[in-house]
């Protein structure tokens, strides 16, 4: 077991060795790289990273450049979990047979967008989680296929206008509720499942460190505000992330060993969902009088989910 890196505050954290370099081609203000940095810089252990096809993959390893100061692999869109499970299996095999390249502690992370997680990579993730590999799966959840021009995924929330669920004369955009990956991964019996937002670096780092300390599969749902497709100013990414947390749209919570729910942060002031929706172009059409019911439904869903989590936490199950 490796020693947990001490990160009490940013003055300490910022002395970390940087493991994800600039010069990548992510959009200005993209939250993906913020999440990646919070995560990979939170440990001094050696890392092997796999990444699903998507914004992060395509922008961090455009030949002839790599932004990764750790070993990294990308195979396809749907197999980030299978890929890292192979790397982890090889690590285990070499270790068991005393053929390891190094005695240094090694951790395994898969990064994928919500398309590569909720949709096309779902089977691969489910398989790898069920097999119990020692890996951490981080979903960079920007609620759509942003790398290809903002199509809907099963993470796109109701009312969201995407290029394949556009708002129109007779449509308010996406009709389905966002898939609940947290519960699905908890049901796999993952050792640790957590949701975080990049604007709360402390929460993210804490969850990253809990992930590194775990020995079984870990699933992290990291919400990743996307200036390009959510349609807001790039400087506002962390503001949006903050409002997502404060409005309880994205509760910061964790589920340990498949059942124990802890809500890590309880906003004191009630921020209505309307405020969050109003900050983004993708929900602009919801403010037409005829779509008012969608905002009401949004609020109802957020409240119900929040209530559910609190009751689970209280019940200890």
């Amino acid at each position: 077991m490796s020693e947990m890196k001490q990160i009490k505050n940013l003055k300490q954290f910022s002395t970390s060795k940087e493991r994800f370099q600039g010069g990548h081609r992510l959009c200005p203000g993209c939250s993906h790289s913020i999440i990646v940095r919070e995560f990979v810089n939170a440990t001094d252990d050696e890392l092997c990273v796999s990444t699903a096809t998507g914004c992060l993959e395509v922008c961090s390893t455009i030949y002839p450049y790599t932004s990764w100061d750790v070993s990294w692999i990308h195979i396809g869109f749907e197999n980030a979990a299978a890929a890292i499970s192979g790397v982890e299996a090889m690590h285990k095999s070499l270790k068991n047979n005393k053929k390891s390249f190094s005695d240094k502690p090694m951790k395994f992370i898969a990064f994928a967008g919500d398309g590569g997680t909720y949709d096309i990579g779902f089977q691969s993730l489910s398989g790898a989680a069920e097999r119990g590999h020692d890996f951490i799966y981080v979903c960079l959840d920007n609620e759509g296929y942003m790398n290809t021009g903002g199509q809907r995924s099963s993470s796109t929330p109701i009312g969201g206008a995407t290029t394949t669920s556009p708002a129109g004369k007779v449509s308010y955009g996406e009709k389905k509720l966002k898939k609940d990956m947290m519960q699905i991964m908890a049901a796999h019996g993952c050792e640790y499942v957590a949701q975080s937002a990049p604007s709360n670096w402390k929460d993210m780092v804490k969850k990253a460190q809990k992930s590194f300390a775990a020995s079984g599969p870990v699933y992290i749902n990291a919400v990743s505000p996307c200036p390009t497709e959510w349609k807001f100013d790039p400087s506002m990414s962390m503001e949006i992330s903050k409002v997502m947390v404060e409005s309880r749209v994205v509760p910061l919570y964790e589920i340990e060993n498949g059942s124990k729910v802890t809500v890590n942060y309880k906003p004191k002031n009630h921020v209505p969902v309307e405020e969050y929706l109003g900050m983004q172009g993708r929900f602009k059409h919801l403010f037409k009088p005829s779509n008012k019911h969608v905002i009401e439904e949004w609020q109802k869903n957020v409240d119900a989910k929040w209530e559910y989590l609190l009751r689970r936490e209280e019940a200890g199950i």
């Binding site: 940013l10 003055k11 300490q12 954290f13 910022s14 002395t15 600039g22 200005p28 203000g29 913020i34």
Partner: peptide, 26 residues
């Protein structure tokens, strides 16, 4: 005030910190 928020939230790893005499990031 060397809070380092800019460092942690920079998506382009473009805030390059220094370390002070006490080993703290500034």
């Amino acid at each position: 005030i060397d809070c380092q928020f800019c460092w942690v939230y920079c998506p382009d790893t473009s805030i390059i910190p220094d370390v002070d005499d006490k080993g703290k990031g500034i």
